[in-house]
């Protein structure tokens, strides 16, 4: 039995979905269960947190990719009206990653953690799916479990607008402090330029091309 199975067994009440992603086990949990899952995984021997990142899924993208993401399922039509077409299938929305497509407003944000155990050589991917609206887009921090998570979470906050609750220093890491928007989101306007200028010894951001550089 692999290390990942141990973890999945122990935190069974927080497991929304388990799967195999290429060569590694995948565990989907919710923001409430994330800290328990990660602490349990660390105790079990997953000592290396490779990275933390996010994948942005606006609603239209989820609809386009619903089949392989698991949000819809092909089912055989039980009583086909047309007798000849017995193998007819219909696409039915089903719950996936803890979400039903009808309950999703703007879209979802997939937050991904990749864990590795130096001793056992096992991988475990942990995913949390949260609403992508900036005010609701938050998951608890794991920076107290892995010091390395601190910067990774700041990066995800900066580029995707995911807030990590309990993070000791939740501020932008690459972009200037008062930059508007989160540049890696799918709906970020890449055509609109923002400029930097200096006021009272502090770098500030403006959209006025004449004012900044």
């Amino acid at each position: 039995m692999s290390l990942a199975d141990d973890v999945i067994d122990t935190v069974q009440e927080h497991v929304i979905e388990e799967d195999v992603q290429k060569d590694k086990p995948l565990l989907v949990t919710d923001p409430e269960g994330l800290r328990d899952v990660m602490a349990e995984a660390q105790d079990a021997g997953f000592d290396h947190l490779c990275f933390v990142t996010a994948v942005d899924w606006p609603k239209d993208e989820i609809e386009d990719n619903a089949a392989w993401l698991g949000f819809t399922e092909e089912r055989e039509v039980e009583d086909p009206d047309d007798e000849e077409d017995e193998d007819a299938t219909e696409t039915v929305p089903v719950e996936s990653k803890g979400w039903h497509l009808d309950d999703v407003d703007d879209g979802l944000m997939e937050v991904v953690y990749n864990l590795y155990s130096y001793d056992e050589g096992d991988h475990l991917a942990v995913q949390v799916w949260v609403p992508r609206e900036v005010d609701q887009c938050s998951v608890p921090t794991v920076s107290d479990l892995w010091a390395g998570a601190n910067w990774h979470e700041r990066e995800v906050f900066d580029l995707y607008g995911v807030t990590f609750e309990g993070h000791p220093d939740m501020k932008r890491i690459f972009m200037p402090e008062d930059w508007e928007g989160h540049p890696h989101r799918k709906d970020y306007d890449l055509g609109e330029q923002q400029y930097i200028y200096r006021e009272d010894g502090i770098d500030k951001v403006t959209k006025d091309a004449g004012k900044g550089w």
Partner: peptide
């Protein structure tokens, strides 16, 4: 699908998701 591949670069674990 989704895959994470990683290699040993001169500076350590270089991965790509």
């Amino acid at each position: 699908g989704e895959a994470y591949g990683r290699i040993e670069s001169p500076r350590g674990e270089l991965g790509c998701l």
